[in-house]
Nucleic acid binder design. Structure first.
Length: 777
DNA sequence: CCTCTTAAACTTTTT
DNA sequence: GTTTAAGAGG
């Protein structure tokens, strides 16, 4: 063993070390909450590299981009100057498979420029099909049908197989939706027609690709000498099978997970995947990480007593060696509004007396709808906060519209994009005409775009005037495509914005809502420019719209890097909080029918998942954990009265402290404010009232020119002058990545490249020609 | 074909 | 209470 390896392994506890060192075959690592799961994964990858594994032969799969980014960052830091993190195959299941599917598209029957439909696109398509089949959308609710289709795909059942199996029809008849098979079949046909895949297809088609083309599977199974999977308890059948396919040659598969934290069964995650791992990989070894490094003894013990109420789990003994800590405080509030006030007050108090920064607080709730009251309370007190989740930036109407132009430019057959923009901005092609186009397309089994190209051959029956309008639309899109052939994504994007008339439409609206939309589009265009710049700096020459769309199609709000390091209170659902930790956690809304959700009442299985969700919530806390519930709450605009959640009594009372709120005994109105007995700490700027009903706080941008002018070669002059002084060891400040140190300089002239380790952004390769930074010594 | 008004549905959780 | 769908009128 080399000294470097010894040094690295010395930083692990004995069980972590065992898990890292065992590299000869399949391994299952059961990692309790806060036990250093990510640490094991990153050290294991670093260790593999030190053994001589090539970075591109290691595949590491996660569920969120955030987890993947975090791991890359930590590996880069661990390895120091070896710039290999970027060459690892690391990412979410969906993003890695998207990459493979694009590369191997010839064997999938899709063109390489296929679109990824988001959930809204899928739903809209399902809805259109239900309508087309003249089914009652009360009986066939699009969302419910979509879930059925999604479940089938996650079980790797294709539409053909679904229709071919009479059992499915019988099951669907029992649920009063016998036509689901028919809808599923038509749905897949239309996706193929549109050259598009939905989220589930990224898994299903990867599986099919490998199954139907053994030679392709062989290539990847040989390529990946080691496969690591994070959060294995959340994998569904499809993911489980693909991992098995890819591991078939080398059998070196290491999965990490915690059955107690399985919270995605509703989405098809199968806890059996982790429970049956030992059976599938005959000679697999089991490692358990049981020491929790995150939370106080009290929190860990409370969580243990809670999860003990669940049946059937892998036995483990999670323990903490940290201080005992205080008991978990349970507080009753009179109303949801008072609940928010209590939490806000407590945050101010802890911030004041214990110097806990605002970023050390998290308010965790079961549903997004609960965020609003907390948002208002925090704003009233001038506390900085950030709400995660809900409508992401890319799902806002105006943003989706522009993205639809990009999508249709890249993929003419994209139906959902087509429908979105055919008459936006208004160009006199209405619902009736669209319906005719759709009908013609379905009749001839072609895409909507094909109909527009040859309206006569597809017997499109519209007036002469309408035909001209359609023709103009077609010509415009063709211009965009010509442009996209030779220009980079930012240039094309700017042009599309202007020529499509979107800019004119949005900027003619001077209402506050209109202003907000303008800001969002500026944000979008800035993001596009940044994307192109950053790809260029990394040496990519042709950064097209396809690249950009691939990047953003799989992004969620949680992945936005902006404001991540700011001093703000975090508000999020418990689901999004998985994997995170905070000094102080408030778990709110602990009422029957809210948490646990009333929908979980029907089965034990669902109730246990809710309990695991609560377990996840409590174990996010390092030092303080507070539980609150409200006796009354406004829901659907109506006042409801609830009872405390059963989960509170699931925790052994020796770990709890019960409080009734001071005010709930007094007569109080829902609307008056709580007077604070102390002055709050320095106030931060309150967030401006959002004019859009979204739950995302986008960081305010400094006043800038409307759209950043496109820079063909950034600040080439500045770069050239600094180039001479740029050498190993020099510290720089990059416009976007922040402070970093130069590790390597190679190449000459325009091709000079520098490898820079940034404090917060990881190690990046910068092409000096494009990079914007200043040398600081 | 567009836009304004009114009615109904909505809330789990997300890649 | 909020957002989307449908229907009437221009």
């Amino acid at each position: 063993m080399t000294e470097q390896q010894e040094q690295m392994l010395a930083q692990l506890n004995p069980s972590q070390r065992e898990a890292v060192e065992y590299c000869d075959g399949p391994a299952l690592v059961i990692a309790g909450a806060g036990s250093g799961k990510t640490r094991v994964l990153t050290y294991k990858i670093a260790y593999l590299l030190s053994l001589g594994y090539q970075p591109w032969s290691i595949l590491a799969l996660t569920f969120t981009n955030k987890a993947a980014d975090e791991m890359k960052l930590r590996i880069a830091r661990l390895l120091g100057d070896r710039d290999v993190a970027s060459r690892l195959w690391m990412g979410t299941f969906h993003s890695v498979f998207l990459r493979i599917l694009r590369y191997e598209h010839e064997n999938t029957g899709f063109a390489s420029n296929f679109t990824v439909y988001d959930a809204a696109d899928s739903k809209s398509l399902v809805k259109a099909i239900i309508k087309k089949l003249q089914l009652d959308d009360k009986q066939y609710k699009p969302g419910v049908v979509q879930t059925h289709i999604s479940n089938a795909k996650n079980q790797l059942v294709t539409a053909e197989e679904y229709v071919g199996n009479p059992e499915n029809l019988m099951a669907d008849q029992r649920s009063k939706m016998p036509a689901i098979g028919q809808i599923y079949k038509r749905y897949s046909d239309r996706l193929r027609q549109a050259n598009a895949m939905d989220f589930d297809d990224l898994l299903l088609h990867t599986y099919l690709l490998f199954k139907e083309h053994p030679e392709v599977l062989q290539k990847y199974a040989e390529k990946f000498h080691y496969i690591l999977v994070d959060e294995y308890q959340d994998t569904n059948f499809a993911q489980h099978q693909i991992v098995q396919q890819l591991g078939s040659v080398h059998q070196r598969v290491c999965v990490v997970g915690d059955d107690a934290q399985s919270i995605y069964a509703f989405r098809g995650a199968n806890i059996d995947n982790i429970l049956s791992f030992n059976r599938i990989y005959a000679d697999s070894r089991l490692f358990k990480l049981e020491q929790n490094y995150r939370s106080t003894k009290n929190i860990v013990n409370a969580a243990n007593s809670l999860i003990h109420k669940n049946q059937g789990q892998i036995p483990k003994n999670v323990f903490s060696e940290k201080e005992q800590g205080e008991r978990i405080a349970v507080t009753e509030a009179y109303s949801d509004i008072e609940e928010a006030q209590i939490v806000t007050r407590k945050i101010i108090e802890l911030n004041h007396h214990e110097d806990i920064p605002f970023s050390g607080f998290a308010i965790l709730y079961r549903t997004h709808a609960q965020s609003r009251v907390f948002e208002e309370a925090l704003r009233k007190q001038g506390l900085p906060y950030r709400i995660y989740g809900g409508l992401s930036f890319y799902q806002r109407k105006e943003v989706k519209d522009v993205i639809a132009y990009f999508r249709l430019t890249v993929n003419p057959d994209d139906e959902e994009a087509f429908k979105r923009i055919l008459n936006y901005p208004a160009r006199g092609i209405g619902q009736t005409t669209l319906q005719k186009i759709v009908d013609a397309a379905t009749a001839f089994n072609v895409s909507l775009w094909s109909v527009v190209c040859q309206p006569l051959s597809y017997q499109l029956n519209v007036s002469k005037a309408t035909l001209t309008k359609i023709e103009n639309f077609r010509l415009m899109m063709d211009r965009f495509r010509q442009m996209a052939l030779v220009n980079s994504a930012d240039v094309v994007g700017q042009n599309i914005m202007k020529e499509s008339g979107v800019v004119q439409d949005i900027y003619s609206d001077m209402t506050p809502e209109g202003k907000a939309r303008q800001e969002n589009l500026e944000e979008l265009m800035n993001g596009l420019s940044e994307f192109v710049d950053s790809r260029r700096e990394e040496g990519e020459t042709n950064v097209g719209l396809t690249d950009y769309l691939s990047e953003i199609s799989l992004l969620t709000d949680l992945d936005s890097k902006e404001g991540a390091n700011e001093e703000r209170v975090t508000l999020m659902t418990i689901h999004s909080a998985k994997g995170l930790e905070f000094d102080t956690v408030f778990v709110v809304g602990l009422e029957e029918n809210l948490f646990p959700s009333q929908l979980a009442n029907s089965s034990m299985r669902e109730m246990e998942e809710e309990r695991r969700l609560f377990y996840v919530a409590v174990t996010r806390a390092e030092r303080h954990c507070f539980l609150t519930y409200a006796k009354s709450r406004l829901r659907y605009g109506k006042m409801e009265f609830g009872n405390p959640s059963r989960f509170i009594t699931d925790i052994d009372p020796q770990f709890l402290n019960f409080h009734a709120s001071v005010r709930s005994t007094k007569k109080s109105s829902r609307y008056d404010d709580v007077e604070l007995p102390w002055a709050p700490r320095p106030r931060f700027n309150a967030q401006p009232r959002r004019s859009e009903p979204t739950t995302v706080q986008m960081p305010p941008r400094p006043a800038e020119p409307r759209f950043k002018p496109v820079r063909p070669s950034a600040s080439a002059a500045a770069a050239a002058s600094s180039q001479g002084r740029l050498q190993v060891g020099v510290r720089i400040e990059h416009q976007r990545f922040g402070f970093g140190e130069v590790l390597k300089v190679e190449g000459t002239g325009d091709n000079t490249k520098a490898t820079v380790a940034f404090q917060n952004a990881g190690t990046k390769q910068l092409l000096l020609k494009f990079a914007r930074f200043t040398i600081i010594g």
